[in-house]
Write a protein that binds this DNA or RNA. Structure first.
Length: 888
DNA sequence: TAATGGACGTA
DNA sequence: CGTACGTCCATTAT
């Protein structure tokens, strides 16, 4: 049953933050709760298979051979499940040399002997042989929670043989999963027909000659197999289980132990409550607790016009938090609200249509939304916040954002759907096919055009958000991440919302001119390439390129990739050096120009009515804590090449403003590494204020700083940055064009002077391996279960992530702090200047007329002062009419 | 039509 | 065989 649960629940949704899979534990426990509740057994035991071979293996060496490997996530859950059973007072049994079913059969027979009524919950059909008047098998049906009662009638109805003949039927048909082949061409129908005619397998064997047809011949040919199957599928009923049935009553249970285990497994309260409820029943029978195990019991209330203020006041007395769900559209810095629902802790909720709101109610709603003293929980609030602002409503009092909270708890997760999180934290996923009525879908699209259903769905969402926020509060408190949510990420959502709405002005005419220029360059490259090859082909197709370069032109092979040989820029540059053929150079130019053209085209497409480009900042994507930017991505606008930098001229200061100002942290990640490692030499290099890389090079190569040449500085610069990424000697050698051995020597020289850096890096990985996660300066965690992987590639990958995550993540923490400080300072000083973009270590601001000096000073102060480090946090600032000229 | 993989832009 | 992203395009799978 645990194995069934394992496959019934998605493993990726049931992993705790230490990387422990929990789906089998969750599913099994859930089934057990249902069994205890519905069947109220007086005695109960759970039997387990063991890993040792059984008597069946001794008799038939290939027993269960050819089975797929047990998924690695499963075995680790068995011990935890047994621990849980121990805590709740349920007997666990296993006996060497026997399968769980033999133990079950033994207990069943002994129970029946005592006149007990016996229930067997098993996913193994062999147990059907035990079915009788007082023995029923509960066999998993369509879903986990659906157990089919296999009574004698049910067995007969399904297999057309009585339970005592089931073994015969199974022997004839065979059992694939046990590697017991049956008679070819004989399925349950034929087998049942024969058994009906001859009465039993023994009789069938005795009269084998009489059976006609191809199947009959097959039966005679495979008689040995059938008889072996029949011997092996008999369940042993006299196993020495070491315990009497009478001892298998539900024992005392350990509430604290269960709580602790559930906390570790990160199971939310629902399953725990259900379990406690049934255990409570077993202690004091008759006192049935009615625990709803599904849906959200929302009570959608209609408030009379003008009554909203009173309703809100009554429901949120004593500052209770509410759940708020908004339906509408948002993106690219704007949006609209179609309706919104407010759910209170009582389970009551209202659903409001802003367009049809009584004026008094509208005022009440606006005031309530803007009231910082009215705590609200939303799921992914930034979008709704933007949409509300587009209607003139400010949102304040954001007390929890369940998407961000879940991100802080599980920063590596891909999506943070409300429905998925409800599954994960509130455990409603097993109740899909349960009681009627109470169930409400969370899927807004799935409810059709029924207005009332949509209102209910939104109200349900609001209540779900409220309940989820509570579960996540506890989750984050346990991690010490509640401050990160409350003081950093939630306020940042508001700042980002306003940045998105502001957008950045674009010079459309200039962009169009650029596009044409890049397009012409692309066309020329295409023509040249076609001419060189002698026919037309698609330069954008890696597959066609491989064909031409390696097959037709016979150029030397590059690095292998899944689909053949790579045609990436490094490889093309290498090819260009290997051959006289001009094609690789043309292809490189084509790649460059194509990339620039598509970047410009993408930007043009996203210029809004107001002449500005409004990106969307995602706060829950990057596993390290960084922001990301999408639609369009303004964090990857070219800057390294001249041609690329020209694109930055298209980002200009908007009407009513005087300058764009950029401010960036210089070498923030290296400074963080110096701070965290506490390496005195590194710290000193930063404190002196001179060229950092040159100073480090001087130490490594034993030269005065002014004698360090460009080559030496470049090597050390690559090394400095590489260290923060878990660079290997091989990687360093590739980057510097030296041999791995030389790179190795260089690294040794480096660490000879900066030993604490090595100590720090090693300690980070060791600690992460022990704790299961890394942490940034503000306590933002990243979980890396692969640090203990048996797979070397995965493990080393995780080690590099562990090296980088605290550094990159701390930098992300710091600039987020800086953004809050800058934003607050701008507003408190009544300045019209505003923040527009964040590019990981850089902020772009739009400066209002006459505010330049104030803003420059304020930005530097709040960025460099965002976090106290052992080294200065240097910030450099540039000002200009466009993003390019504002560089420094 | 959706998913995947290669390639490449940024910090 | 350094990290973190998002987007475009071609190709493959459904």
């Amino acid at each position: 049953m645990a194995f069934r649960a394992f496959f019934a629940l998605p493993a990726e949704k049931f992993v705790n933050s230490a990387g422990q899979a929990t789906n089998a534990i969750y599913g099994f426990t859930s089934m057990l709760v249902k069994l205890l509740r519905d069947e109220q057994p007086t005695h109960i035991a759970v039997a387990w298979d063991r890993s040792e071979p059984t008597f069946r293996h001794e008799e038939y060496a290939d027993y269960k051979a050819g089975r797929a490997e047990t998924p690695p996530e499963f075995p680790g859950q068995v011990g935890l499940l047994q621990e849980l059973l121990g805590l709740i007072g349920v007997t666990s049994l296993s006996v060497a040399g026997y399968e769980a079913d033999d133990i079950i059969a033994t207990l069943a027979v002994r129970g029946l002997d005592r006149g007990m009524e016996v229930l067997i919950a098993s996913g193994d059909r062999d147990t059907f042989q035990l079915v009788g008047a007082d023995c029923t098998v509960l066999y998993p049906g369509k879903s986990l929670s659906d157990l089919v009662r296999m009574t004698p009638e049910a067995v007969e109805a399904k297999y057309a043989v009585p339970p005592e003949r089931y073994r015969d039927l199974a022997a004839l048909v065979g059992e694939k999963s046990d590697n017991l082949p049956g008679v070819p061409g004989v399925g349950p129908k034929t087998a049942a027909k024969w058994l009906a005619k001859y009465g039993s397998l023994d009789e069938l064997v005795a009269r084998a000659d009489e059976i006609g047809g191809k199947a009959g011949q097959n039966f005679r040919d495979h008689l040995d197999d059938v008889l072996r199957n029949q011997r092996l599928n008999r369940l042993e009923t006299d196993v020495d289980v070491g315990l009497d049935v009478a001892e298998m009553t539900l024992g005392a249970w350990n509430r604290d132990g269960v709580n602790l285990l559930f906390d570790n497994l990160e199971f939310a309260s629902t399953l725990r409550d259900r379990l406690f409820a049934v255990l409570g029943e077993s202690e004091a029978a008759g006192e049935a607790a009615d625990v709803p195990d599904e849906g959200f019991a929302v009570e959608l209330v209609e408030v009379a016009p003008g009554g909203l203020a009173a309703w809100l006041a009554a429901e949120t007395a004593a500052g209770a938090r509410t759940g708020l769900a908004v339906e509408g559209t948002w993106g690219r810095g704007s949006g609209d609200v179609v309706r919104l629902a407010v759910a209170a802790p009582s389970g009551r909720a209202v659903c409001l249509d802003p367009a049809r709101l009584d004026p008094a109610d509208e005022a009440a709603l606006a005031a309530w939304l803007a009231d910082p003293a009215s705590p609200k929980a939303l799921h992914d609030a930034k979008g709704p916040m933007t949409a509300l602002r587009a209607r003139g409503w400010e949102l304040a009092g954001l007390d929890s954002d369940t998407a961000i909270a879940a991100y802080l708890a599980m920063p590596g997760r891909r999506n943070f759907d409300l429905a998925d999180l409800c599954t994960r934290y509130l455990g409603r996923e097993l109740t899909e096919s349960g009681a009627e009525g109470a169930q409400l879908t969370l899927d807004l699209d799935g409810v059709g055009d029924d207005q009332e259903a949509q209102r209910r769905a939104l109200a349900t969402r609001a209540l779900a958000t409220l309940e989820l926020a509570l579960a996540l509060d506890a989750e984050l408190a346990r991690r010490g991440a509640d401050g990160l949510l409350r003081d950093l990420e939630i306020p940042l959502a508001g700042v980002l919302s306003r940045m998105e709405s502001a957008g950045i002005a674009a010079d459309l005419d200039y962009l169009h001119a650029l596009e044409e220029e890049f397009a012409a360059a692309v066309r020329q490259a295409v023509d040249e390439a076609h001419r060189v090859v002698g026919r037309e082909f698609n330069l954008g197709s890696p597959k066609q390129l491989q064909q031409i370069l390696f097959d037709e032109l016979g150029l030397p092979k590059t690095k292998r990739i899944k689909t053949g040989y790579t045609t990436d820029a490094d490889a093309l540059a290498w090819l260009a050096a290997q051959t006289d053929n001009e094609l690789p150079v043309i292809l490189l130019r084509h790649r460059d120009q194509t990339k620039l053209r598509t970047t410009v085209e993408g930007l043009i497409k996203t210029v809004a009515e107001d002449g500005r480009i409004h990106t969307t900042f995602n706060q829950t994507v990057a596993a390290t804590g960084r922001l990301s930017s999408a639609d369009p991505n303004l964090q990857n606008i070219p800057v390294r090449t001249d041609a690329g930098r020209r694109i930055r001229r298209a980002f200009v200061v908007g009407e009513g403003y005087e300058y764009l100002l950029t401010a960036d942290y210089s070498q923030i990640e290296l400074r963080i590494m110096a701070h965290l490692s506490q390496d005195e030499a590194l710290i000193e290099a930063f404190q002196s204020g001179y060229d950092f890389h040159a100073q480090i090079a001087a130490r490594v190569f034993h030269l005065p700083v002014d004698r360090v040449d460009g080559e030496a500085r470049a090597r050390i610069k690559a090394m400095n940055y590489g260290l923060a990424y878990g660079l290997s000697d091989y990687g360093l050698s590739q980057q510097l064009g030296i041999t791995p051995k030389e790179a190795r020597v260089l690294m040794e020289d480096y660490f000879a002077h900066f030993g604490k850096v090595r100590d720090y890096l090693e300690a980070v990985v060791a600690r992460a391996r022990r704790d299961g996660y890394t942490a940034t300066m503000l306590g933002r965690r990243r979980y890396l279960p692969d640090l203990n992987s048996d797979n070397r590639q995965r493990r080393e990958m995780a080690e590099r992530m562990a090296l980088n995550a605290p550094i990159q993540g701390s930098a992300a923490d710091i600039i987020k702090l800086a953004m809050l400080r800058v934003d607050r300072a701008l507003r408190e000083n009544g300045l019209a200047s505003r923040m527009l973009l964040q590019v990981h270590d850089e902020l772009v601001l739009e400066v209002a007329p006459g505010e330049l000096d104030t803003v420059r000073e304020l930005v530097v102060e709040h960025m460099s002062g965002a976090q106290e480090l052992r080294v200065p946090l240097a910030v450099s600032v540039g000002v200009g009419p466009n993003w390019h000229d504002a560089a420094h």
